[in-house]
C-alpha cells in the first residue's frame, strides 16, 4: 500500500484517496480552432511515462481536496506532493481564485 502525503492532513493510507489521472493537462483556450486529431489528443491521450509522473489525487475519505503528486511509475516512490496552485505546481491558480474573489466582494 502507498503512504501518500496529503498537503493538509499529512501521510495517510492509500485507501483514503482516489486517483485523478495525469496532472497539468490544460484545456485548449479555443477548442474550435483544433483539428479532430488535436482534440482527441487532449481528451484521450496521456503521456504514460516510465519514471517521474505528475498526477492528481483526491483525499476522498479525508479533507476531500485535490492535490498534486509526483510519483515514480517504476518504483512507486512518491517524490513529493503539493497543493494545486502552489509554487511547485507551476500554476497560479490560488492567486487567480484570490483575485476573482476580490472582484466578487
Amino acid at each position: 500500500m502507498l503512504l501518500i502525503e496529503c498537503p493538509w492532513c499529512g501521510p495517510r493510507a492509500e485507501t483514503e484517496f482516489s486517483y485523478g489521472g495525469e496532472a497539468g493537462i490544460e484545456r485548449p483556450a479555443d477548442p474550435y480552432a483544433l483539428s479532430d486529431a488535436e482534440w482527441a489528443d487532449y481528451l484521450f491521450f496521456r503521456s504514460n511515462p516510465r519514471g517521474a509522473h505528475r498526477e492528481l489525487w483526491n483525499h476522498a475519505q479525508g479533507c476531500r481536496r485535490w492535490f498534486g503528486v509526483e510519483r515514480d511509475t517504476v518504483s512507486y516512490r512518491i517524490e513529493k506532493s503539493y497543493r494545486l496552485g502552489s509554487a511547485g505546481s507551476g500554476r497560479p491558480a490560488a492567486a487567480q481564485i484570490e483575485a476573482s474573489e476580490e472582484k466578487r466582494r
Partner: peptide
C-alpha cells in the same frame, strides 16, 4: 481530529 476510514466507513 481526523477524517479517515473506520471499518469500511468514512
Amino acid at each position: 481530529c481526523a477524517q479517515t476510514g473506520l471499518g469500511r466507513a468514512a
